[in-house]
Design a binder for these strands. Structure first.
Length: 126
RNA sequence: GGUGCAAACCGCUCUAUCGUUCUCCCGAGGUUUCGGGAGGGAGGAAAGUCCGGGCAACACAGGGCGCCAAGCUUCUUAACAGGAAGGCGGGCGAAAGUUUGCAGGAAGGUAACAGAAAAUGACCACUUGGUUGGGAUGUAUUCCGACCGGGAACGGGUGAAAAGGUGAGGUAAAAGCUCACCGGUGGUGGUGGCAACAUCGCCGGCCGUACCUCUUCUGGGUUGUAAGGCCAAAUAUAUCACGAUUUUCCCCCGAGCACUCGGGGGAAUACAGAACUGCCCGUUUUGGUUCUUCGGAAGUUGUGAGGGGUAGGCUGCUAGAUCGGUUUAGUGAUAAACCGGCCAGAUAAAUGAUAGAGGCCUGUCGAAAGAUGGGUACAGAACCCGGCUUACAGGUUUGCGUUUUUA
């Protein structure tokens, strides 16, 4: 079991993949998060590439958007091992996008809980 | 000490655990990557993108008109619509101060509502001439009217603004009509100031105000780092332009062993289009036309434009009008010299998350020590600088005004 790292290879950076994800990916909601996922293949050793985003419409200030993205990323980083092992068992690769759909700043423990249940739901659905 | 004004500055700290990006070192691995260690990693506004520059690409003979922006003076600066110091006018304040405005009135134009009239000013009231009605006295005066024609900007009223103010003379009544003083303006001279301007004297006309799409003066190419450059990958050279070359046909000149060989294939014209541009002139260029013995087709290939395809890496990319001191010059903005330092470079976008402790401010309880609750702002680099504007919990320092107490 590797540690709680979150390297660049684990992040979703390719504009092309992001475009594909939004046009042909499936999604579900675990308030305050919306998860968009797509089974695909990419040349990295990790089972998942993921990205986080916060709408500019709900949060006008960049500071608040950054804070929420950081909290989501921390929650992902600290709990991703269950997702990794689950996907590795099924021998799948996927790209994920977490969209924050809440309208106000939400504390870290709430986001963490939502993230864990999102992982369980994702493993069932995929 | 209270209260107020101005300027400058700071704008949370520490520990633990787990992470992120860049640089360097070590080890594994061997054109990539992984592990460990050390160090650097948001702001005073990083924001708004409102001005001004650097840098880059593209464009560019020149002139006129237009458009946009600025407009007291001197200085400052790479530059500015910024800043500093000063000048004049207005507003606020008891004061320290603060705030706001500033080219011009020669030509053109505008001045709502109200008011008679907004610049060729006569509504009421004033005054006068003529005609006329009535009354009084007693036979040519006076009083009260009406109508017509003048005089006159002193008074009333309107307005943001009403034809300089006060006094005297003057007159039928008046009036810069005249005079004295005052205000303003133009000219001129002295003094002070680099200047805006201030101040004093003399002379003149006796003198509206505010504003503009008006006039004048100064400046102004366009687009922004998603600029631009390089590499990789990928598709395929459609179309267009220019050049080179080959073949063929045509024309001209020369040779000639007679249908072969060698050499060569322009110039003028402002008619039209295009470019430069907001428009016009103009310039450049292309096409056409004309003249002339005097160029057309096809293939191959190169360069450029353009389409299609590719959406990945490097560069630009951070050492600079740089930062921190000290000294000197200057009222100041700022400049110069010397010493020292290296200070973010991400790209679905790092600079963090969680927990604990402590500061700071503040509410309540309490004589105090303390206890307990709340708050800890505004805000996140995206090519780089100089300004401006806006947001901001709380705090520090300095100078000045005013008031009170003490001496």
């Amino acid at each position: 079991m590797e540690g709680f790292t979150f390297h660049k290879a684990e992040r979703l950076c390719s504009q092309k993949l992001i475009g594909e994800l939004f046009t042909s990916g499936e999604s579900f909601l675990v308030y305050p998060l919306k998860v968009v996922f797509l089974k695909t293949e990419f040349p990295e050793p990790y089972p998942v590439q993921s990205a986080f985003t916060v709408s500019k419409r709900n949060f006008k200030r960049a500071v608040k958007r950054n804070l929420l993205k950081r909290r989501m990323r921390e929650a992902y980083r600290l709990n991703k091992h269950s997702l990794y092992t689950g996907l590795a068992d099924k021998n799948l690769q996927a790209v994920l996008m977490f969209v924050f759909v809440g309208k106000e700043l939400i504390e870290f423990p709430v986001i963490e809980k939502a993230m864990i249940s999102a992982f369980k739901k994702l493993l069932v659905k995929i």
